[in-house]
């Protein structure tokens, strides 16, 4: 009887997905849907938080007041995005604290891109252009995710993310038309960030263990490769417009498909970095662990005060 009713539930659920309905936290959902969502949403949240670090690295060294403010506002937004996403994950009954513990223990993943160092100011421009650009492609798709809270969080994020990319590209364009030293700086940054940005879209779908079920259940709506191709298509003309070269000798325009075909990604590097051996993995996690540990007494104080004052009322 139980197996039968579960099959019936699953059928009803999949029919809802097919009708384009949004699934809300208290609706029936397959266990695997719930687990995949918790994994995906928390990873997304962790990425926003860890992502504050490579960019935060340059706030104190931003070269003028306008850039300083724009970068600080961007990093602040990222904290906010992390919060929206933790919030959305919590609707499925997991406490934020538990998710953060997983991150600090090294058992949770976050986007591999944030394990690369920001070596020059040009990196800040290129991150806005490539990394936020890639994130926008992904998040625009996720704004239509079948899980209501996740879709809504992404809608909110998309609205705010557009200034991030614009700011980045403006920096890139300024440097590209600047002094020789500035041009060299931004070209070098492009050389270092291009391939890791393409890796942000994940493995080929055939190599991605969860892709099929995530697509079937509308958690994501497009395949990794589709999104990656779309990102390349919009970015190549942008690079040309500012006279910067992308580090891929195999980039070629295909008249028939309208796509810019590109070379093969170094999947060894991808798996190595995701697995914990990227240039900055340890530093990123240590920074987050330290902030959390040093903040314990503050959180304890706030709780103690709240308790004292609650009982006085």
């Amino acid at each position: 009887m139980k197996a039968e009713s579960e099959t019936a539930e699953l059928e009803r659920f999949e029919a809802r997905i097919d009708r384009g309905e949004r699934i809300e936290p208290k609706d029936w959902m397959p266990d695997r849907y719930r687990r995949q969502l918790v994994r995906m949403m928390s990873q997304h949240a962790h990425s926003e938080i860890v992502g504050m670090l490579p960019e935060g690295n340059w706030i104190t060294r931003a070269p003028n007041l306008r850039r300083k403010m724009a970068l600080l506002a961007k990093v602040q937004d990222e904290a906010g995005h992390g919060l929206y996403l933790y919030s959305a994950t919590e609707t499925l009954g997991v406490a934020r604290e538990e998710l953060v513990d997983q991150l600090h223990a090294g058992t949770a993943k976050y986007s591999s891109i944030f394990n690369y160092p920001t070596l020059t100011w040009a990196d800040i421009g290129v991150i806005g252009w490539f990394v936020d650009g890639a994130a926008i492609v992904n998040q625009t798709m996720l704004a239509k995710s079948s899980f209501g809270p996740y879709a809504r969080a992404n809608v909110r994020i998309c609205k705010e993310e557009n200034f991030h990319k614009k700011q980045g590209f403006e920096i890139v364009a300024t440097l590209a038309s600047g002094t020789d030293a500035q041009r060299a700086m931004v070209q070098d940054a492009v050389d270092r960030w291009w391939w890791p940005s393409l890796m942000m879209f994940g493995p080929h779908d055939d190599d991605s263990p969860n892709s099929q079920v995530l697509l079937r259940w509308g958690v994501k709506r497009k395949s990794n490769d589709t999104l990656r191709q779309h990102f390349v298509n919009i970015t190549v003309p942008q690079a040309r417009a500012v006279d910067l070269e992308l580090p891929d000798p195999d980039l070629e325009y295909d008249e028939e498909s309208g796509d810019w075909t590109f070379g093969e990604i170094d999947w060894d590097e991808f798996y190595r970095v995701i697995g914990g051996d990227g240039p900055c993995n340890r530093e990123r996690l240590n920074a987050r662990r330290e902030a959390h540990a040093e903040g314990q007494w503050v959180r304890d104080a706030a709780t103690a005060y709240a308790k004292k004052h609650a009982s006085r009322q």
Partner: peptide, 11 residues
């Protein structure tokens, strides 16, 4: 709009 964590209502 969503939710926030805080130790009390004012925060």
């Amino acid at each position: 709009a969503g939710n926030v964590h805080a130790p009390d209502a004012e925060m």
